Computed example of a mutant assay.
Amino acid sequence: MATVRERLRPQRKETRHQIIAGLSFGFWSGLLGPKYEELWRDCLHRAFPNSSGKRKQVAVAVERVRKFRNRLAHHDSTDNVDIPFELRQIFDLAAYIDTDAARWLKRCSGLMTVYAQRPVTIDDTVIVAAKQAWPQYESCAAYVCQSGRAFRPIERVAFYADREVKLDVPAVLHRRDNVEWSSEEAARLGASDDRFDRKIAKVIETSDATWTDGRYQVFLLTGPGHPDHRQLRATLPHHGTGRGSAFVQRQRYVSLHSLENAATTADL
């Protein structure tokens, strides 16, 4: 702030509004750092009435938006940037301050209209039939299927159940085939030093009667809150009718980009 005031003083523009306008995004991000915890508790938390009230949550959100803003300001490539995800972070941060302002920003933004025209051909996501798989994912952030089932190289899994593609599109953290499904194997894996072993042990322990003794293939997936996790703006309903009209019988491949821009399964 002192640097800004020194720059403005010779121009006789050292006013409150000019000082605030002259501060960098980094200043505001830094103001939410741990050394200002007392300031946050005393008064700064009131600037974000719709947040959890935790300084760290707001600090992380502001820093995330700052990095994205800097990338755009420096004309850096966005080829590998998940634009819809970054846009949602901006709206979420705005909502911490004022929900009406966040809604106004969404109405004004034309970014998704432009983004929908972005050419993408990589089918990086598998959509699986998920009558049983969706409840299992919700309970233990995993997808289990028969051993030896073939999949193309994919980065994400989406779930089709209840005649819709569900909101969550988790990233694949780990994939393992030929897993023995027994209490003995769960105990062995649970005692391992490998975190994926321990996670698979929990999946076995929490699985219902659908998964009897045998061998299965396991995908360990992200959950909400993980930095690689993605959620759609809304579920994608499937309006097909008649026998054999289900959108997914077993599995099908799409791009995350197409999922994020679809309104129904017909758009896929």
Rank of each mutant, 00 (worst) to 15 (best):
L31A: 09
C140H: 04
T113W: 03
R118K: 10
L39I: 11
L87Y: 01
L8A: 14
R118L: 10
G214C: 03
W104G: 14
H17M: 14
L31N: 09
D124H: 03
D100G: 15
W181Q: 00
T15W: 13
K56L: 11
T78E: 02
V254T: 11
T222L: 11
R175W: 13
T264D: 01
H174C: 05
W104D: 13
K56V: 15
V114A: 07
H45P: 00
F151C: 11
N50S: 04
H74W: 03
T241H: 07
T264Q: 02
G22F: 02
E14H: 14
L167F: 08
G53E: 15
S258N: 11
T210C: 10
C140I: 07
R64S: 15
R12I: 12
I97W: 06
L93R: 04
S147G: 06
D162C: 02
H174I: 02
I200T: 03
L220R: 07
G223P: 04
F159K: 01
T264P: 00
S139V: 08
D92A: 10
Q89W: 02
F219L: 00
I127C: 01
Y143N: 03
I154N: 04
A116V: 12
R5F: 13
F85L: 02
S192I: 09
V62L: 11
K131F: 01
P237W: 03
V62R: 05
V179D: 07
Q231H: 10
R195D: 11
G223T: 14
T121M: 08
H17G: 12
Q136H: 10
D124V: 00
R152M: 12
R188H: 06
R9H: 07
R103C: 06
R118M: 09
K54Q: 11
V165K: 01
S77H: 11
P34Q: 13
S255H: 05
L167G: 01
D168M: 01
V126N: 01
S24F: 01
L268A: 06
A47V: 12
R64T: 14
G148S: 11
D123V: 15
G53Q: 14
Q136M: 11
I122A: 06
D124K: 02
Y216K: 08
Y253K: 13
E38M: 14
R66W: 06
V169F: 02
